[in-house]
């Protein structure tokens, strides 16, 4: 049967996507507003972008955020990939139930609980709050997301390729690095990107675990938003949106190309 989109289907898709994208679009448009009043249009201007780059505190926060996100996403990718391998390749090992519980719980756990509990832990072990505590906290949260992304890929993975390599005499580690890893690489990259954006974005957990000299961009934005809207924040948001969009599009193109290439090789 050929599926036909009914008028109802088309209307709900159009309205749904309008709802998702209109607020973001308005934010981007108003970042080029000449007026200081955020909701009154005062002509086209790029002055807020200039103001943004001259805002030392905001730039510094962006740099801290970027470093935390890169570091925590890298560690989380390694840990998450290991956890995904453990869940798919190790059968019923001791404590598996607890392990799956610990992998799925942080993803839905309200952030206030995760943030508070990690902070109390860091206080208990007498670790100074700051850059490192946020990094550790973000690693813990985001590794669970990496696990799920990589696990989903490993589930659909054709084990016979690994078996073939082993039959031909490749030791397990070598098989992993030359067969398994290249095949699951796109999902690992996707997991890394997810971990990276989650870390960039996090306000609640970072607020609990921050310390002197470790103000992240979301913390900074949040404190400014509480004081009122500012066109500078619109400009900062637009840059972030642009970066993320570019990142997602290039990731999609990359994975498409790798799919095409592997299809070509298969023929």
């Amino acid at each position: 049967m050929t599926r036909r989109l009914s008028l109802f289907n088309i209307t709900s898709l159009v309205l749904g996507f309008a709802f998702l994208y209109l607020p973001i679009l308005l934010l981007v448009v108003y970042s080029f507003n000449g007026s200081r009043l955020v909701t009154v249009w005062g002509g086209f201007s790029t002055q807020w972008y200039g103001a943004l780059f001259r805002n030392q505190a905001l730039m510094e926060a962006a740099w801290v955020t970027l470093r935390i996100a890169l570091l925590s996403a890298s560690i989380a990718t390694v840990l998450g990939t290991l956890a995904a391998l453990a869940l798919t390749r190790y059968g019923r090992f001791t404590g598996r139930t607890l392990f799956t519980g610990m992998v799925y719980a942080p993803m839905v756990m309200p952030e206030v609980i995760t943030g508070l509990s990690l902070l109390l832990f860091f206080v208990a072990i007498d670790l100074d709050r700051g850059f490192w505590t946020i990094t550790l906290a973000h690693t813990t949260l985001t590794m669970c997301f990496v696990t799920v992304v990589v696990q989903a890929r490993l589930m659909t993975f054709d084990r016979s390729l690994e078996e073939a390599a082993m039959d031909l005499g490749a030791p397990p580690l070598r098989t992993f690095f030359s067969v398994t890893l290249p095949l699951i690489a796109p999902s690992i990259v996707a997991g890394f990107l997810l971990a990276f954006t989650l870390s960039l974005d996090d306000l609640v957990i970072a607020s609990f675990n921050t310390g002197p000299g470790a103000t992240t961009l979301p913390i900074k934005i949040y404190s400014q938003v509480r004081l009122g809207l500012s066109p500078e924040i619109n400009a900062a948001s637009t840059i972030l949106i642009g970066l993320v969009t570019a990142g997602v599009i290039s990731a999609t193109l990359l994975s498409k190309r790798s799919v095409l290439r592997s299809r070509r090789n298969a023929h």
Binding site: P23, I24, L27, L200, D201, L203, P218, I221, Y222, V225, L229, I233, S237, L240, I241, V244, T245
Partner: peptide
């Protein structure tokens, strides 16, 4: 895209 920004 940032959760905070979308709420903002």
């Amino acid at each position: 895209t940032s959760f905070l920004i979308r709420i903002y």
